[in-house]
């Protein structure tokens, strides 16, 4: 196990280097000039000398290789540079925005699990009944609607029918006012969790069906255990293994892919920060934030594999 862990951690490094190279190159491939992106049409007023001095201010007059080396060297020591748009260190900005996205992702996943797992189990137990069909249809509805449509609909209903959109546009961190924070987060979390609960429900249902046919479950039934106990104590544990993987993958996705929902609900999350940074050609911020998201993503995958090993006795990483 330890050897496997070391191996995986070792593999982590080349991936990060690859990601950093990819991001560094990608942002420079995007057409458009940093200075125009910062100044807008007034960049047309600049003299050549002013342009040059701005370029050197942003460090863009140096060879690309040197720019990368500087940035990478900084990144190793935890210095991701300074955002041109925000005038703050990139690490501070990530530290400020990441908790918002993390909270959103955790809430969405929790909601999805709370809804998806029980429904999935019920659908499996009452397999091929009207209930099963209904739940499956509901789940599919969650999967087939583009998130921005669901979000728009929810916002519309909230504002016109219920007349609430808690403190819209002025996001309050959890530690500042937990109650208000939760009220602001619950609907974006539902929007994100809706689609995900569908995946969870489907996965739970199918793996539950699979497990319910296995020998040991039959044995447990044979021993005369009550059905409820068979399900909760014997079948569930094994049926949930694929769900763990699913949660891992989804968490990774949610930590960087929620920018549409963050925009609709005006939450100051990492995804929106990054997407805005791309359109503002804020090189340092794009590089730093992407590297961070990718690292978290890879770490979560590692974690999932470990959890996997912990819950599934059939898998062993020591060979």
């Amino acid at each position: 196990m330890r050897r496997y862990l070391l191996q995986r951690l070792f593999a982590f490094l080349p991936i990060l280097i690859g990601v950093s190279l990819l991001v560094f190159t990608a942002i420079r491939l995007i057409p458009g000039d940093v200075i125009t992106a910062t100044l807008g049409t007034e960049a047309g007023m600049l003299t050549d000398a002013q342009r040059e001095s701005l370029r050197s201010y942003y460090g863009l007059d140096r060879p690309v290789v040197e720019q990368y080396a500087r940035w990478a060297a900084g990144a190793v020591t935890g210095d991701l540079g300074v955002s041109t748009r925000h005038g703050k260190p990139v690490t501070d900005l990530i530290g400020d925005r990441f908790p918002v996205t993390l909270q959103l992702a955790l809430m969405a996943v929790t909601l999805a699990l709370l809804v998806g797992i029980p429904l999935g189990i019920l659908a499996a137990v009452r397999h091929n009944t009207v209930f099963d069909l209904f739940v499956r249809m509901l789940a599919l509805a969650g999967l087939v609607m583009p998130g921005f449509l669901v979000g728009t609909l929810i916002i519309y209903l909230l504002s016109t029918v219920f007349g609430v959109l808690p403190n819209a546009g002025n996001f309050v961190r959890f530690n500042e006012d937990p109650g208000l924070n939760l009220r602001q987060m619950i609907f974006p979390a539902i929007t994100l969790g809706f689609a995900f609960s569908a995946s969870v429900m489907r996965m739970t249902r199918s793996s539950m069906l699979e497990v319910l046919g296995d020998d040991y479950v039959r044995t447990a039934r044979g021993k005369g255990l009550r059905e409820r106990r068979v399900i909760t104590q014997h079948a569930l544990r094994n049926a949930l293994i694929p769900v763990v993987t699913l949660v891992g993958v989804e968490m990774g996705y949610l930590l960087g892919g929620t920018f549409i929902i963050e925009t609709l609900f005006s939450l100051p999350g990492l995804g929106r920060l990054l997407v805005n940074a791309i359109s503002q050609r804020d090189y340092a911020l794009v590089q730093g934030a992407t590297l961070f998201i990718a690292s978290v993503f890879v770490l979560i995958n590692l974690l999932v594999d470990l959890v996997y090993a912990a819950v599934d006795p059939r898998i062993s990483y020591d060979r």
């Binding site: 991936i15 960087g256 892919g257 920018f259 791309i278 993503f297 890879v298």
Partner: peptide, 14 residues
């Protein structure tokens, strides 16, 4: 893995 380390929509956007 490098490509996989990006959320899908984000990568597509870039």
């Amino acid at each position: 893995d490098v490509f996989f380390a990006f959320p899908a929509l984000l990568l597509a956007l870039v």
